[in-house]
Design a protein around this nucleic acid. Sequence first.
DNA 1: GATTAAACGAGAGCGGTGCTCTCTCGAATC
DNA 2: GATTCGAGAGAGCACCGCTCTCGTTTAATC
Lengths: 236, 236
Amino acid sequence: MTETPRQRARIETEAQITAIGNRMIDDEGVDGLSLRAIARELGVVSSAVYRYVKSRDELLTILIRDAFTEIADAVDEALDGHRSVETLALAMLEWSRRHPSRWALIYGTPIADYEAPREETVVPGTRIMVTLAELVAEIRDDAEAATEGDAKPRGSAAKSLQGGKERRGMEAALQPLRDGLAELGLDYDDHVILETITIWVAVIGLINGLRFGQFGPGFDDVEDDLMSEVIGRLGA
Amino acid sequence: MTETPRQRARIETEAQITAIGNRMIDDEGVDGLSLRAIARELGVVSSAVYRYVKSRDELLTILIRDAFTEIADAVDEALDGHRSVETLALAMLEWSRRHPSRWALIYGTPIADYEAPREETVVPGTRIMVTLAELVAEIRDDAEAATEGDAKPRGSAAKSLQGGKERRGMEAALQPLRDGLAELGLDYDDHVILETITIWVAVIGLINGLRFGQFGPGFDDVEDDLMSEVIGRLGA
DNA sequence: GATTAAACGAGAGCGGTGCTCTCTCGAATC
DNA sequence: GATTCGAGAGAGCACCGCTCTCGTTTAATC
């Protein structure tokens, strides 16, 4: 069942194309990703590239999945050292520094007239957020174990807590997120979900602000400190 | 000192161009902004447009300034009703719903090979964040007035509070933000700045996530509720 | 009022993009 | 050895931003 030389060559060329594509996005942003330029670099005429890749969009899907996987791997690796929300956030921030344009590719404005096929990108694209939810749940469990002796059941049926009119809005507001987690076979307490999404949007918002230069200049040396302060302010 | 017919015609054409440009971005995103298409719509050959606008980038700068101004006006108007962080956030969210692509233009991935001239965009671009800082400071002052009788001096010299090793990182981390505020003639307590930036990144992050579809489907009816819950979780 | 200067639009053209279609050649397969 | 099939070449289409030239029309000046 080994590959024929023909197949081997094909696989290698495909790998070259994605490698060049990743490098082009790193260097010039997603707009700099050009199949014609890839063809030039391969020493081949532009139409030849279409033997290996159906369209620019298909290549984009591959590169997006790549990026999601790479940053999630980086986060997992960092968490092997010390398991905390701060570690997770700093690992994302560090990856964004190394690959600003690929960061923008996955967490910035979606590409016009392109829709990532969900089945291709949902799983790698949600890995970090799921990890964050796990972390938040762990911390919450630890805290509860410390205060009270017994643990509450972990289901989503925590409606009676601090009941009142706000709870109804919260339940509805979190429904789509609960559904998304359910699709992945997960089930978390509403408070865990709210905590997770709050931290998530703050982390993504901060990294985007830094990467996109929305806060002005002068942050190069204080990015990590700023992230830590914000995480601290969030109480995580 | 009234305008000649010639000048009037020029001003009107310029207004038409920016109007068409705004509509094109609204309809098809920033990539859909094409000077050739604008020319077609004006019933004119493509090169003629360059009489009114030096380049696509120059038009972009105008449209970016426009968008910043419009959303900041919308926020100000909303705050005339009820002054709160939630009102500010919901007003931004509402504007983003009406103009998703123009939202992306100002808070999404920066346009490749384009740098907004700071002097043109800094002031309109920072209006909302400054308003948020004011709001946070007001709330803080109110809270202090309620707990203690006397108010602390409002300078940035609040280093002695809860001193320790974290404070030093916080001071450094917030320095670029303090500098940015100083450029606008503003001076806030470090804790106000940290609170402001935390809320800011969470709000931007949440709206980006919703607009860019990063949380999956099903949020259409709960966007406002979700924003309110997150703001509530942030304690603002 | 005639003349000059400035503004304007038309049109052709350059180099770039994604993508399609046809043709040819060489290598793997039968 | 004949045949099939995959790969690359090349031309071409429609789009883009932008530049240059060349008449024409308008406005200001003498």
